[in-house]
């Protein structure tokens, strides 16, 4: 009896674990199947065409791709220095009394749903952008800034964790030679934790590019490519969030699936680079 139960337990758990792989494969397959109509009809033009006009059966994904790239790029430019500054502060600078409370608040802020960041962006940040740079406030620039604020806690927390892996004794050795805090950070901690820090930043990039709710509120879903950051724009997730339930025609529907597939492939690639190239496996980063 025991032996049978033992086998059942072992096989059930293995079956479920393997199902995760099958599920991921299934997700890719389904997205690909539903994209086929658009892939065959539009071919490579899908990613180079700049016009997205469902009523004219025109589906060019370039504005959405452009928007994803630019908004994420903006977010990274703003968030990376801030996150590194916060990480340095938390790991090397903060007085003992502030270290834990500030560190824990950063981790908790990383848990706040992104839809809340989006609401904040819409009601409080859009008016500021409107007053400062003109336009309607709903813009690529706003999206980039809100996105940067949204990923800041995650980025700072994981960067701090990477910096904290530097053994104390190594830091003390550098202080013992007369190093200042900054000497120790730039000569010991950063070289020691380099892979971890870069990996963390890329992981944050992978999350930012797939982020939907923080930007949907403030981007405008306008399919245009413009150098002017104060104009409304769109990104792949923003397009999906706004248009998925409206898609009626076969090609419209299929092109949205192709956008999903594209987004999944892009984030899979970025996250894999972070994971396999920079981060050795450690405990889950929750």
């Amino acid at each position: 009896m025991s032996i049978i139960l033992d086998k059942i337990f072992a096989h059930t758990s293995k079956f479920i674990a393997v199902s995760i792989l099958l599920l991921v494969a299934w997700i890719f397959t389904v997205l690909l199947q539903h994209s086929m109509e658009s892939i065959t009809a539009l071919g490579f033009d899908f990613v180079t065409e700049t016009k997205w006009a469902p009523n004219l059966e025109k589906f060019g994904a370039l504005p959405a791709i452009y928007g994803s790239v630019v908004s994420t790029f903006l977010a990274m430019i703003l968030a990376v220095p801030l996150a590194i500054g916060v990480a340095i502060y938390l790991s090397e600078l903060a007085p003992a009394k502030l270290k834990t409370p500030v560190g824990v608040s950063i981790e908790l802020l990383a848990a706040i749903p992104s839809v809340v960041y989006g609401m904040w962006g819409l009601f409080y940040f859009v008016p500021i952008v409107r007053d400062l740079v003109g336009g309607i406030g709903i813009s690529m620039l706003t999206a980039g800034i809100v996105l940067s604020i949204m990923i800041l806690p995650f980025m700072a927390a994981v960067t701090r964790d990477a910096m904290d892996t530097t053994p104390d004794i190594l830091k003390e050795s550098a202080y013992a030679l007369g190093g200042t805090r900054w000497d120790v950070i730039k000569d010991i901690i950063i070289p020691y934790a380099k892979a971890g820090i870069i990996g963390s930043l890329i992981l944050a990039l992978g999350r930012a590019i797939g982020e939907t709710m923080a930007v949907t509120f403030v981007m405008g879903n306008v399919h245009q490519i413009s150098m002017d950051l104060t104009l409304p724009a769109t990104s792949i997730p923003v397009t999906l969030a706004n248009e998925f339930t409206e898609a009626s025609s076969g090609l419209y529907y299929s092109s949205l699936f192709q956008l999903s597939l594209l987004l999944l492939v892009i984030s899979f690639t970025i996250i894999s680079i972070a994971k396999f190239y920079f981060l050795r496996r450690k405990r889950v980063g929750l």
Binding site: L170, S173, Y175
Partner: peptide
């Protein structure tokens, strides 16, 4: 200045993440 004049060796070897030469030169470069 005090730590330049009074050096320290630790329980475990603490080679910095850099080359042998740079390790030795580190204190002088500082």
């Amino acid at each position: 200045n005090l730590r330049i004049q009074i050096g320290m060796i630790f329980q475990k070897p603490t080679a910095f993440p850099m080359s042998i030469f740079d390790n030795i030169a580190y204190g002088m470069r500082l």
